[in-house]
Design a binder for these strands. Structure first.
Length: 552
RNA sequence: UGCCUGAUAGUAUAAUGGUAGUACGACGGUUUUUGGUACCGUUUGUCUAGGUUCGAAUCCUGGUCGGGCAACCA
């Protein structure tokens, strides 16, 4: 293997650290989601990066829930996150929670108070915001900033003891109210929230802020490389400040650009809105960019990992074309998915010279990409067939390699047929196509000497089974919904879901199993939906096949 | 009018002072019982103005443009 993929900038940092003997070459990363929503493809990028780094450098990765804000978090989310990370194919070294460290974090805060580096502030949120100044004007200290250590110690203990209502007081770090970096203007460390926490219950009524929990959690776990997204760059100075003042393990933070995918939204807040307001079926709606949505849509873990590998890791803002994701799933499924025939928009095709009541059994390989075809299955042929409506044209254009009066095509794995005529109803819709078949053109021992350009799929009318088929399209009509005028929901694609109540499928498809990808020949890759039953089969279209045929 | 960031084909991503390359896309071709796949080919790029240097995408200076920062969110 001459795999000479160049390193991304974080891998370079890690290699430099290892070469320099930092942490004795030990690499420990972490994936730190807040359990306030479902994971999406953007998280997949972070997961692949963090776990990938550890795998590559013989390290480990912790799964740590950043659960410091009880009012937004829930075990439902914890469970889904664990499921999604596992499904993607990664194993964490330890399952940890920021809430595991509440006692220690409290002690850290007390230590800072004793060092006169933190104080209790009675101001309201508005007052504090005002006193922080603006990016161009420095902040100003208030009377609480000069409270004595003893008073702060007592007040903080009282906060913890529940003596004050929500919002009455906060604990702030005494950093620099004039710092150009707004995050250093005496940031909040603790706030009072008399709220039930999904893990610690009612043990606490004060909760640490992100800035006083994340870096400390990293340090407690001895994380060597704390990788996060660009918007945390301004927090890094604070991250280092706390670690230095506390003299704890010197974890280092590195930032990369988050993934942006076009024609969708990626913020948990917006995704939550889509779910709550019923624009989609739930977090796992196949149109959602969530891991669970992609899974239900038919995406494989390998395809998502490959996608994350291909998009790369850098610091510049990016907007990835969803076409790349589609390429990755097609590439994966092409090698593995079994081929079957299904007619989604049926029109009846009658083989007028084929005996009525007769049936022949034909065989088709499961996958032409596999050496031995990956085995085969049988399907019946008869006088009346369902074919795709779009495979016939009353007035075919020049290079239309399908049916039209006088044109010939091969029926996949069966005979060559020639179109002789068609029938229309009163409204002018074509209802039937009449063809004749060439008996000597039988698939496998064709002696007709005729070569046809087109091959179409078909299903025998009397033998066909039925299924509901759900065709999905992009959820939004514009590339970047959140950058458009007005509400992002104004740009939802009204045709993102097209349901075909009754599609005709070849008999073998009744044996399809959940979680298995199938290629409906010439139509795309499909998978059984989670609500599919043996009585009512439901197929989701994962992705179409690439279509090289453009009309005109 | 502050601070922090970033800028390479349409989209991403390499080149770490020495031939601007790769992938996806697009376009064209060969093969094909999927207008799929596979294979081959073509196309398009260093934000800008200076400077340093034998040599600059890379280093320096100024400008332009994008993103972030003033939540008791993470």
């Amino acid at each position: 293997m001459s795999e000479e993929r160049s390193l991304n900038f974080i891998e370079e940092i890690v290699e430099e650290d290892i070469a320099a003997g930092k942490h004795n070459g030990r690499v420990l990363t972490r994936f730190p989601p807040e359990p306030n929503g479902y994971l999406h493809i953007g998280h997949a990028k972070s997961i692949c990066l963090n776990f990938g780094l550890a795998q590559k450098y013989n390290g480990k990765t912790n799964l740590r829930f950043d659960d410091t804000n009880p009012v937004k978090e829930d075990v439902e989310y914890v469970d889904s996150i664990k499921e999604d990370v596992k499904w993607l194919g990664f194993n964490w070294a330890e399952e940890l929670y920021a809430s595991d460290y509440f006692d220690q974090l409290y002690d850290f805060a007390v230590a800072l108070i004793k060092a006169d580096l933190a104080y209790v502030d009675d101001s309201t949120a508005e007052e504090i915001a005002h006193q922080k100044g603006t990016p161009t004007e420095p902040g100003v200290p208030n009377q609480y900033r000069s409270r004595s250590v003893e008073e702060n110690l007592q007040l903080f203990a009282d906060m913890k003891a529940g003596k004050y209502p929500d919002g009455a007081k906060v604990l702030r770090a005494k950093v620099d109210l004039a710092a150009p970096n707004m995050h250093l203007r005496d940031p909040l460390m603790y706030r009072i929230k008399h709220a039930h926490h999904h893990r610690t219950g009612d043990a606490w009524c004060i909760y640490p802020m992100y800035d006083f929990a994340h870096g400390q959690s990293d340090a407690i776990e001895n994380i060597t490389h704390s990788v996060c997204t660009l918007e945390f760059i301004p927090h890094r100075a604070l991250y280092d400040w706390f670690i230095e003042r506390l003299s704890i393990f010197p974890s280092k933070q590195y930032e990369f650009a988050r993934l942006n995918l076009n024609y969708t939204v990626m913020s948990k807040r917006k995704l939550l809105q889509l779910v709550v307001e019923g624009h989609v079926d739930g977090w796992d709606d196949p149109r959602m960019p969530t891991i669970s949505g992609l899974r239900r849509r038919g995406y494989t873990p390998a395809s998502i990992r490959e996608f994350c590998e291909r998009i790369g890791v850098a610091k510049r803002e990016n907007m990835i074309d969803v076409g790349l994701l589609e390429f990755c799933i097609r590439e994966d499924l092409n090698k593995t998915a079994w081929r079957r025939m299904a007619v989604l928009d049926p029109i009846k095709c009658i083989i007028t010279n084929y005996p009525e009541g007769e049936t022949e059994i034909f065989t088709g390989e499961n996958n032409p990409e596999a050496e031995d075809g990956d085995g085969s299955r049988e399907f019946p042929f008869s006088r009346e067939l369902w074919i795709e409506r779009e495979d016939f044209m009353e007035v075919p254009p020049k290079k239309f390699f399908r049916l039209g009066v006088g044109l010939m095509v091969r029926l996949k794995s069966a005979y060559i047929i020639k179109c002789d005529s068609f029938v229309k109803d009163a409204d002018g819709n074509v209802t039937e196509i009449h063809c004749t078949y060439l008996p000597e053109s039988k698939s496998g021992n064709d002696t007709s000497g005729i070569n046809v350009k087109g091959t179409i799929h078909w299903v025998s009318v009397p033998h066909a089974k039925t299924a509901e088929v759900r065709l999905y399209d992009r959820l939004f009509q514009v590339e970047n919904p959140q950058s458009e005028e007005g509400d992002f929901k104004d740009y939802i694609n009204p045709n993102s879901l097209h349901i075909i109540p009754t599609a005709y499928i070849e008999p073998d498809l009744a044996n399809a199993t959940p979680g298995t990808a199938i290629q409906f020949m010439r139509k795309g890759y499909f998978t059984l939906d989670k609500y599919s039953t043996t009585e009512k089969l439901i197929f989701n279209r994962t992705v179409t096949l690439k279509d090289g045929w453009v009309k005109k």
